[in-house]
Design a protein around this nucleic acid. Structure first.
Length: 305
DNA sequence: CACTTGACCTGTCCGC
DNA sequence: TGCGGACAGGTCAAGT
């Protein structure tokens, strides 16, 4: 079963919340880049000058991208941020000891376990706690930039609305309507349409809204799209409450797995009964991705022949 | 411009 | 038991 539950919005947000409580306010002591390909420097940036002695002030998220803001070690130096994309197998895990957060903390089990062979970057803070960037497949990255440089990353500059912030509907419907000739699943996976949706929550939301993933965007009514956006929001809220989805590699900032997959209706449930109509769930391939659906009740609009 | 496909990686699983 | 190959998926570059 070569399936992964990879970091999407709920997983990245879970990591962000952990980092907010674990490393905001702490000062960078050392940076150890074990795999240079995992660590990038924007033009003009320098690890020693911009990062060593800098204090983490904030942990932000935009879609699946994490941004750790830092105030400079000395006045006059640029405020920077560490921009992180976990891609498929990336992890950001903070390791501490009983001295840091008390005996019996689940994180204590990480001492002696990390670093391991997937560890690409290690950042040590002033009190000895360590932030590990692990990434089995080396697709993920961490980049030192200024906030302005981060905002210019194409992925961020063109990203669609946040599903869980404010009212994303007007922006979402305008953006999704630009892609009328493609399948609704491909449109959902496009980060410029809606931020943070990946393969798991696309399949789950489409099932929830009873929409076939291959349906052309142009065949969907505003009503359908509104119901779909609500479904995205709902599945992401449920996943956040469950700490995200873990199949193999995803863990939060304290090294804990998430349990959303036990609540999933169709994702990686091919061969099982649809919870709504009892028809057998099938797995197909669409938009280059494994796609799970109920062939009976996801019929809002049949895909065009 | 809209849309699709391949590349980037590594570990795991399946068939022989 | 070993080995080759298919497969997993986020994003970008290149192709249609």
């Amino acid at each position: 079963m070569a399936g992964y539950a990879v970091p999407e919005l709920p997983e990245v947000e879970t990591v962000r919340r952990g980092l907010e409580s674990l490393i905001v306010g702490h000062v960078v002591d050392t940076v150890d880049v074990i795999n240079p390909g995992s660590f990038g420097l924007a033009p003009g940036r320098d690890v020693r000058r911009d990062l060593l002695g800098a204090t983490v002030t904030q942990a932000r998220r935009r879609g699946k991208v994490l941004l750790l803001d830092l105030s400079p070690a000395e006045p006059g130096l640029a405020a920077c941020c560490l921009v992180v994309h976990l891609k498929m197998t990336g992890q950001l895990v903070v390791q501490g000891t009983d001295e840091h957060w008390g005996a019996g903390h689940p994180n204590a089990s990480l001492v002696g376990v990390l670093p391991d062979k997937s560890t690409r970057v290690v950042i040590t803070f002033e009190d000895g706690r360590r932030l590990f960037f692990n990434d089995q497949r080396k697709f993920g990255w961490l980049r030192l930039m200024t906030p302005a440089q981060a905002a210019e990353i194409d992925l961020i500059a063109t990203m669609g609305p946040e599903p869980l912030s404010g009212d994303p509907w007007p922006d979402f419907v305008a953006r999704v309507r630009r892609h009328r000739a493609t399948s609704i699943k491909a449109a959902l996976l496009n980060q410029s349409v809606l931020a943070g949706v990946g393969n798991i929550y696309a399949d789950e939301a489409l099932w929830s809204a009873s929409i076939h993933p291959a349906t052309q965007v142009s065949a969907l009514s505003d009503d359908d799209l509104h119901r779909l956006l609500s479904a995205v929001r709902d599945v992401m809220e449920v996943s956040l409450a469950a700490g995200g989805s873990t199949d193999r590699t995803y863990v939060d900032a304290e090294g804990r797995a998430g349990s959303y997959l036990s609540f999933a209706h169709v994702f990686r449930r091919e061969g099982q009964a649809c919870p709504r109509c009892d028809t057998t769930i099938v797995k197909t391939r669409l938009a280059g991705r494994g796609t799970h659906l109920c062939p009976c009740c996801q019929v809002v609009t049949k895909p065009h022949a």
